[in-house]
Amino acid sequence: MTGPALLSARGLGLTFGTIPALADVDVDLWPSEMLAIVGESGSGKTTLLTVLSGRLKPDRGSVRYRDPDGHIHDVHAMPAPVLRRLHRSDWGFVHQDPRQNLRMAVSAGGNVGERLMAQGARHYGDIRAAALDWLGQVEIDAERIDDLPRTFSGGMLQRLQIARTLVTHPRLVFMDEPTGGLDVSVQARLLDLIRSLVSRPRIAVVLVTHDIAVARLLAHRIAVMQRGRIVETGLTDQVLDDPQHPYTQLLVSSVLSA
């Protein structure tokens, strides 16, 4: 875990009307690590994810991405087609609501295969085999490959979205509350799955969650946000067990057990 960062943001600032959504935010992400961004609703964590992934341009500051060849790209200065290509291949985005990412009128297998086709895969048998393999990895029965996602439960939809995202072997995945809105038992299964899938070498993840227990389970490092600022950042267990900032102490003391 040494060497240059994969993604670096410096001095991010963004104002919605008079509300500061992001202020003086610096973020670094290295290959193969998971960084959790925690905070209450409205603290700016989802806005930060949207800015880091290039979907929203900040008023101030920049986000730089280092590609596999070592070239540095300013994410917000990239031409739109280049950014789209990045999102289809090297990057992935897991939304809280899988319907934002999935095509509900296309079969489960089609949803997974589509990202491969967008990368240039053309051989039907190969694409179907890859889709089948990924459905298995996210514990969706092979028999469901031709079913439409609308027949799936919430937990299955989330697992399908993860398969669709990881099939292209992205190096960088953004996750926005991936376990939000799911039953506790379904959450546990999904957490275990995420943990094993992203522990593979070279996948780096920025995970937004309001659930401190999720951050503790998955993340190497954590950043705590309040009113658009990162008020504390560091090793996950150190920040959660020995919080220094008043807001982090409040956040940690407010949960039953994390």
């Binding site: 875990m1 546990a188 943990r195 190497h220 090793l235």
Partner: peptide
């Protein structure tokens, strides 16, 4: 933090009083 994680991985082990683990494993 990343240096501390490397030390923990290769050099420094810790046995706490209580087990904290992932469900299902």
């Amino acid at each position: 933090p990343r240096a501390i994680l490397a030390v923990r991985r290769d050099t420094l082990g810790y046995v706490s009083q209580f087990l904290r683990v992932v469900p299902r494993v």
